[in-house]
């Protein structure tokens, strides 16, 4: 699924990486616990989370993820967005709750692994 499709599906706002929405991800992971992301993720390109802090970007960076979506309308601060921009990670926010966001993406073909 292309990142612009994810944006449209989640009615999301792109906070950085607008020029990189033609990138594709094949699977996603959703968690507020970064240690769980680090434990169970393999080749997931997209992270959905309701946790807002720089460690979310660090975690995505370590896992080679391409995009972070902050759900439940969470708004990351400029420092977090800037860190992601430096690491070439696309950041979006969506007002949807985690369950709904995951369900929509899954039903449109994005896999969990």
């Amino acid at each position: 699924m292309y990142l612009y499709e994810i944006r449209d599906t989640l009615q999301a706002t792109v906070l950085c990486g607008e020029e990189a929405l033609d990138r594709e991800v094949r699977s996603a992971c959703a968690s507020d616990f970064m240690s769980d992301v680090l434990a169970y993720v393999k080749d997931q390109g997209l992270l959905l989370t309701g946790m807002v802090n720089p460690q979310v970007v660090r975690t995505a960076e370590m896992m080679d993820m391409k995009c972070i979506v902050f759900v439940r309308g969470k708004l990351p601060g400029p420092d977090i967005v800037e860190l992601a921009r430096e690491r070439d990670i696309v950041v979006m926010r969506s007002a949807l709750r985690m369950f709904i966001a995951c369900g929509l993406l899954y039903s449109r073909g994005l896999a969990g692994e």
Binding site: F33, S35, A39, Q55
Partner: peptide
């Protein structure tokens, strides 16, 4: 509060 401290650090390092 930052998404750590779940007792996964050392197990992840081992993994």
């Amino acid at each position: 509060d930052l998404g750590f401290g779940a007792g996964m650090g050392l197990p992840n390092m081992k993994r």
